[in-house]
Amino acid sequence: MRMGVLMTAPAIALLFLFTLGPALYAFYLSFFSWSLLNRMHYAGLSNFGYLLTSHLFWTAVANTASFALVVVPTQTMVALVIAVLLNQNLPARGFFRLAFFFPAVSSSAVISIIFMWIYNKFGILNGLLATLGLHGPNWLANPLFALKAIMIMNIWTTSGYFMVVFLSGLQAIPQSIYDAAEIDGASAWQRFIRVTVPLLKPTTFFVVVMGIIGTLQMFDQSFILSGGTGGPLHSTTTVVLLIYQYIFSYGKVGYGAAATVILFAVTMGVTLVVNRWLGKAIEY
């Protein structure tokens, strides 16, 4: 027993120092008014009161929610479809697996900067649209399109990673079940819907939960593509970008910490709901 504690002590110490400690400190800070530079003083629940009546905070919540609602289902389905396709005996399978996985191993900052050029008004995307006779918008400068542009980029980036997760899930499904289904006369579509999808449920659970957590915490792509402003007209301001701005740009640590606590509660709640829905394993 003592040995076990001793062996895990370094990991636990690091966890407290760099993860749990700062997280608890954020809870503490959410009850204070502090600019990082002055003395902090106790503010009770006023930070929460300010946020819940702040138009900007609700804009950020709406942006984040719509981002998650679009990105999570899309990237899950795209990843599943690609994984099923690449699980077949296709020519150049290795190349395609690499090509789809590549964005997941690249830095999201680098990808964001590349996409800044792709989305430029005279960039490659609008060039492609023009060959189809379409007049592309000024993606990142138009409040109607800026967040959608980031959604597209995010789906492209993360689908590859989740594809690999689905691939490993697919490999774990015993071939015998497919054989049995085939003997019973199930078509390819029926085998996909009745065998593959249900047996992938633990993998799907993981993908959906990670997707939700990732999208609710989206920060870097908005930060880079909007030049740190969350613009145009706050259309790309996510909750985490707003937290960053409150704490580091505007010197309102209490508001930022309170938003962190709210985000934590929401993420936790959503994850619990998903757990009830997808969390139980299926046995045949």
């Binding site: 402003t229 007209l233 701005q245």
Partner: peptide, 17 residues
């Protein structure tokens, strides 16, 4: 002091509109 958010968002947003 205290006008960073105002000048970087409110003034830009209103002028954009």
């Amino acid at each position: 002091p205290g006008f960073v958010q105002f000048s970087s968002t409110t003034m830009v947003d209103q002028t954009t509109l």
